Simulated scan of single mutants.
Amino acid sequence: MTVFACARCDTLLTAPVSRVALPVHARQVYGHELIGVLMESGTYAVDPEPFGPPWRPWAENSPEQVRASGVHAPVFALSHGPREAIVIAPGDVRGTVLIPERCSGRCCGPDGRDGPNLACTGCGTAVASRIDDCGSWQAVWLDPRGVRALPVPGPALDSADWDELRERWPGTPPVERSGWWSPLWAAAVGAALAHALAASNGTRITVPAGLLADFFGRSLDALLPQRSPARPLALAGPGVPAVAGTIALTPRHPHTGEIWQPAATRDVVPLDAEVWTYLVSPRDRGPAAGGRVAPKAAHQVYRDDLSPFLPILAFRPDRDVFLDTLVRLPQVRRPWLRAIYDRVQDRLWEGPF
């Protein structure tokens, strides 16, 4: 276990936490409502990319700065904030106080645009950014320049192995009770879509009918040329063997960040484990033991749980997560993929987005 303390005065700033993989939706901005807490309590993740202000427009960055940023195509602006920012759940914060003059945001709360907005209660040093605005995942980002990690005794995180993945993470439903698509799904599919394009080498990708087609088919058809030859995209992972010749859609472990690598193919597209497990084992809403007996069908037993929620609109992957993922893949420098990147970036509402 780890706690984080102020680098200047050693005031403890967090509860004990264990490291996990950075969620794929960590930087997502989605909709105009509060969308929940990013990190599970008792965990933390580290972002290897620069985080927060100052931001510089693309044209103001030198070639050396662009190379160091890890992007391979133009973006609106580059962050020149620190790398290795640590993100935790707001409830795991200790020993801090808000800095009121640094709490600007879009409408509902601070979004971190002013830099660190939490100060250490021991010495007043700015040590973290509380994100609490609409459309942003609730989180506290510790500034790596203002904190230091301290090991503490405590039980290690019980990280499931691959065989336990489908039991420990049974999956997040794609539609929320409100009827809107889950932002986690929009981010996960957006990121996986970028990897799928990179693996396609510019050729058509086919998707089998069913849930996989519902979430990937329309986007792939819109972005890739519809001509032969084509390669199929198929689920693979623990308990789901890959088929030779396919592009394998495999889970990314939520704790370690490891990507399942099948032996049958080298072309792998990582997908958030909560989404992958749902696609592999969608909820069975049919007759099952342990429920109530229907009055007119006493020979059948039905579940007590609710029917699946129906979406209000057609599914759209998160455009910004798609672009942010694609611009960090070296393959985007290939002319055909750069053309797709430019088209999606320049035309906000076109195609699957």
Rank of each mutant, 00 (worst) to 15 (best):
T2E: 14
S18T: 15
R27N: 11
G31S: 08
G31T: 06
I35M: 02
G36A: 04
V46E: 09
V46R: 07
V46Y: 03
V46N: 04
E49L: 10
P50S: 11
G52K: 09
R56L: 14
P63F: 03
A73E: 06
A73L: 02
V75L: 14
F76A: 14
L78R: 04
H80F: 08
P82G: 02
P82F: 00
R83M: 01
A85C: 13
A89I: 01
G91V: 03
G95M: 04
T96C: 15
R102T: 03
R106P: 00
R106Y: 13
P110Y: 02
R113F: 00
G115R: 06
L118W: 03
A119W: 11
A119M: 08
T121L: 14
G122N: 05
V127L: 06
S129F: 05
C134V: 05
C134R: 01
Q138D: 15
W141P: 00
R145N: 15
P151T: 13
V152M: 08
P153T: 10
S159V: 14
D163N: 05
E167L: 09
W169Q: 03
G171M: 13
T172M: 10
R177S: 14
R177V: 11
S178C: 10
G179R: 11
S182V: 04
W185C: 08
A187V: 13
G190M: 12
L193G: 06
A194N: 06
H195K: 09
A196C: 05
G217E: 10
A222K: 04
L224F: 09
P232I: 06
L233G: 13
A234F: 00
L235A: 12
P241C: 12
P251E: 07
I259A: 13
W260A: 12
R266W: 01
D267A: 15
V269E: 08
L271C: 08
D272P: 03
A273Y: 10
V275E: 03
T277E: 07
Y278C: 02
L279Y: 08
S281P: 00
P287G: 10
G290S: 07
P295E: 14
A297Q: 08
Q300L: 15
V301W: 00
R303Q: 13
R303N: 08
L306P: 04
P311M: 07
I312P: 01
P317V: 11
D320C: 03
F322D: 01
T325R: 13
V327G: 06
R328Q: 06
P330R: 07
A339D: 15
V344C: 10
R347Q: 12
L348A: 15
W349L: 15
P352A: 02
